[in-house]
Amino acid sequence: MKRRTFLATLAATPLLPTLAHAAPLDYKPGLINERIDAGETVFLDYKASWCTTCAAQERVLDALKAENPAYEARITFINIDWDTWARTEVVSSLNVVRRSTLIAIGPDRREIGRIVAGTGRDEIKALMDAALAVATS
């Protein structure tokens, strides 16, 4: 192995636990239960690529994650594509009535909170902070 590559890899090693949640995961059946069973707090984002409200929520989520890396380090973010999953159990079991719904669920399977079609920074931050509090308790 080249020395530079080795040193770069060595320097990045302490970041690996932090990067475990770095990118939102795309939903697949069983993923939510798998992550909750592993003791994780999950943040579900029901969205559609054509939804302007979803896009506004995503901009706020991205800005908040950039301001506070603890969100991504401690919370598992899962994107659920509305066009693919709208008529399935992942929607009906949680009583999701529309896209642009954000739901935080703790490792005890209790809903921490939800936002339906809300795009306000303070509202979304409050939900993320509540999820982070559960994730770090």
Rank of each mutant, 00 (worst) to 15 (best):
Met1Ala: 11
Met1Thr: 09
Lys2Asp: 15
Lys2Arg: 15
Arg4His: 13
Arg4Glu: 14
Arg4Gln: 13
Thr5His: 10
Phe6Tyr: 11
Ala8Asp: 01
Ala11His: 10
Ala11Ile: 06
Ala11Pro: 03
Thr13Ile: 13
Thr13Lys: 02
Leu16Asp: 05
Pro17Met: 08
Ala20Thr: 06
His21Ser: 12
His21Arg: 07
Leu25Arg: 10
Lys28Tyr: 11
Pro29Ser: 15
Pro29Phe: 03
Leu31Met: 09
Asn33Val: 00
Glu34Asp: 13
Arg35Gln: 13
Ile36Leu: 15
Asp37Cys: 06
Ala38Gln: 08
Ala38Thr: 01
Gly39Thr: 06
Glu40Met: 08
Phe43Trp: 08
Leu44Ile: 05
Tyr46Leu: 06
Ala48Tyr: 00
Ala48Pro: 01
Trp50Gln: 01
Trp50Arg: 07
Cys54His: 06
Ala55Thr: 13
Gln57Trp: 07
Arg59Cys: 00
Val60Ser: 04
Val60Thr: 08
Ala63Phe: 10
Asn68Gly: 03
Asn68Gln: 09
Pro69Cys: 07
Glu72Arg: 14
Glu72Gly: 14
Ala73Gln: 11
Arg74Cys: 01
Ile75Arg: 00
Phe77Leu: 06
Asn79Val: 04
Asn79Ile: 07
Asp83Arg: 02
Ala86Arg: 15
Arg87Asn: 13
Arg87Met: 11
Val91His: 09
Val91Met: 08
Ser93Lys: 15
Ser93Phe: 03
Asn95Glu: 13
Val96Ala: 01
Val97Asp: 14
Ser100His: 04
Thr101His: 10
Ala104Thr: 00
Pro107Glu: 11
Asp108Phe: 08
Asp108Pro: 02
Arg109Cys: 05
Gly113Tyr: 05
Arg114Met: 05
Arg114Phe: 05
Ala117Ile: 02
Ala117Ser: 15
Ala117Met: 06
Ile124Glu: 03
Ile124Lys: 14
Ala126Asp: 14
Ala126Gly: 10
Ala126Gln: 09
Asp129Thr: 10
Ala131Met: 10
Ala133Met: 04
Ser137Phe: 04
